[in-house]
């Protein structure tokens, strides 16, 4: 498997798994309007995953399709970051997870607009407006909850505690990223990390939330070593195709 295929799967898995997590809110959102907002985001992410899987499938060739990549790979073959597979928790935790990912994804996609792989650059260009909206929406929610009531502030603090260890992995380049970075296809994660921290510090300051320092970094997702969460997600996501192989609508 070439580094480019691994990288595309990494990008696609990030969006698919986060989409699946967000979709768990469908019908359970705190208010009707936010139920629609989070499921809209979920659908955006699913669309992004489909574009990336389709491109990866053409490179893999043979029987591979976007569906086989989403439904027929095992846990260890998924390369998503650990952050996106973490449970929804309460609304604060879902919001913080979305914010951390969107801020990262926006900075990353801005770099990938100049990727030397034209197909990847085109997919990114198509998605970046959606990402910009997710970032705006989640940033406002972080500020609203952080600088809200005593309870919402407390819940944000708890969310930070739950999730922060998983944010560091976003910026640690896997071997395939390092290879592609040299070819100008993947982005320089060091640069993205700096932007992410700068922007997040500003938003946290407005939200009256403390920015954690020197937190232990959990890694592994990009190489297929996941937390216990992913298995449960895939069990639900892949159930139909596993139980009824080849089933169609």
């Amino acid at each position: 498997m070439t580094p480019l295929i691994k990288y595309l799967l990494h990008l696609a898995d990030n969006t698919l798994i986060l989409s699946q997590r967000n979709s768990e809110w469908c019908g359970h959102g705190p208010v009707l309007e936010q139920d629609i907002a989070i499921t809209n985001i979920s659908l955006d992410l699913l669309g992004q995953a489909r574009n990336l899987y389709s491109y990866a499938a053409t490179l893999i060739g043979g029987e591979a399709t976007e569906d086989s990549l989403a439904y027929l790979r095992k846990e260890r073959e998924f390369r998503n970051c650990l952050l996106v597979e973490q449970p929804n928790g309460d609304w604060a935790q879902t919001i913080l997870r979305q914010y951390c990912f969107s801020q990262y994804q926006y900075a990353l996609y801005q770099e990938l607009l100049n990727s030397k792989d034209p197909q990847l650059a085109a997919i990114v260009e198509k998605s970046i407006k959606e990402v910009a909206y997710h970032l705006r929406w989640s940033s406002e929610w972080v500020i609203r909850l952080g600088d809200g009531t005593e309870e919402s502030h407390r819940r944000m603090l708890k969310a930070i505690e739950e999730l922060w260890a998983y944010t560091g992995e976003l910026f640690e380049a896997a071997d395939y990223e390092k290879d592609l970075q040299q070819e100008g296809i993947a982005a320089d994660l060091e640069k993205i990390k700096q932007e992410w921290q700068l922007k997040t510090e500003a938003i946290f300051a407005e939200a009256t939330l403390p920015m954690p320092r020197n937190v232990f970094v959990q890694t592994g997702g990009k190489q297929g070593i996941h937390t216990e969460q992913l298995g449960f997600i895939l069990t639900e996501l892949q159930y139909m195709q596993r139980a009824y192989p080849g089933a169609k609508w």
């Binding site: 629609i36 907002a37 705006r136 406002e140």
Partner: peptide, 10 residues
């Protein structure tokens, strides 16, 4: 602000 975004989504 939230009303505009909710309206956008709904």
């Amino acid at each position: 602000k939230m009303a505009i975004e909710n309206a956008r989504d709904v």
